[in-house]
Nucleic acid binder design. Structure first.
Lengths: 213, 213
DNA sequence: GTCATCATGTAAGCCGTTACATGATTGC
DNA sequence: GCAATCATGTAACGGCTTACATGATGAC
């Protein structure tokens, strides 16, 4: 899971550990703060297995601003040094920037297509957030699986709701679970429609089961 | 968590492991199938520490039907034995029925009042399902904490939504996360109102912060 | 006689956490 | 000089899972 998230973020950008954590927190709503105790070992593991490689920070500048050319004069160099201290474009400490390898790309694809078990809401959410990297077919299958899991779960929860023994609080908990499930089911159904709509002609000949009324 | 769930279920009824699992599955919508690999060790642990005690199935009948009194005659006893085999009230295999102890009750109360961390949706749901066993004050505080966590999380997610870099799928994932959070916030707010409404006069003098329009 | 269900347990492993240790740099 | 932020890492542990092992009983 973490591996998948890391590799997904590294698609298209080079990042160091700290940044990965930040992006995981505020680009996807998914993982409010992975702990460093998971993140760094995960990166080390991925590097060992060749899925990512550390690029030894060739310069100090961030991609957007190129390093100022050296002037040659002592006072000039000093000014540059001070400027570095002043602005925020340089690194504060040695940081290891990672880049995904081809191997890593293949690993990512594999992980992404893996089946998130039922109950694994986060697994689904992450995969959906990265769904751009899936084939339309795989994307659809991901949605259908999720939808079916939710429907199954819903009927279980509805069953629980029938129990007259439930006190006020237990009942409200179960009711809320049911509502959330309903919301999720509706969402996946809308997503499915959107997916089917966005490419009317495609090779996928599977029957879209839709109960008649 | 599991401990709390087990102790909660044992409040008011005596159960064996298998039954606990069933009730966890279909009385609360919360834990679709705890694995036995967690459940039995948990029960053993709770028994070791004296939170529950195994009652050595004194009879064979289910709570609802009292055990038939022994006749004293050999053939009579045999009839009882056969009757046991016939009807469904008797056990299929030796089962360990557990009862919560006073010690266990105290442990339950402690666990229930513990703060479920942010991100611990299940922890909150379980506690809310058992909220009957909390004081009005503790119940309210549980709700308020949850509400605040949800609001905080929501503002983070809204921030994520502002990112123009998000592709279609990532965006839909984050949007859905935001919707779910909104739903949950609304729910907790309704629960708070209901709580406050159900006992207009109480000693709790905390200010209910409510933004004026 | 064999399958499904009920019933209890152990062992290994996964995937994350918290707590701790270290260190550069900036701002007050 | 001290706190805050950025940055990387290790060690220990927690809480759950899967896989495996065992066994009684009832239904077909």
């Amino acid at each position: 899971m973490l591996d998948m998230a890391i590799l997904g973020l590294l698609q298209g950008q080079e990042l160091h550990g700290y940044e990965i954590r930040r992006q995981l927190r505020d680009r996807f709503g998914i993982w409010a703060n992975v702990s460093f105790g998971s993140l760094y070992p995960a990166l080390a593991r991925l590097e060992r297995t060749g899925a990512v490689e550390a690029i030894t920070t060739p310069n100090t500048a961030t991609p957007s601003s190129p390093p100022p050319p050296p002037t040659g004069s002592l006072s000039g160099e000093w000014a540059v040094f001070r400027a570095r201290r002043r602005d925020h474009t340089h690194r504060r400490r040695s940081r290891k920037v990672y880049r995904i390898t081809e191997e890593g790309g293949r690993l990512f694809a594999t992980l992404l297509e893996e089946d998130p078990g039922p109950d694994d809401a986060r697994g689904f959410a992450l995969r959906w957030a990265f769904a751009r990297h899936l084939s339309p077919r795989a994307r659809r299958s991901l949605l259908v699986r999720r939808h079916d899991q939710l429907v199954t779960r819903m009927s279980e929860v509805r069953g629980a709701l029938a129990d007259p023994e439930l006190d006020r609080y237990a009942r409200s908990a179960v009711e809320h679970a049911a509502e959330t499930l309903e919301h999720d089911v509706g969402w996946t159904e809308r997503l499915l429609e959107a997916e089917d709509g966005s490419h009317t002609i495609h090779e996928d000949r599977e029957v879209r089961s839709k109960e008649p009324t």
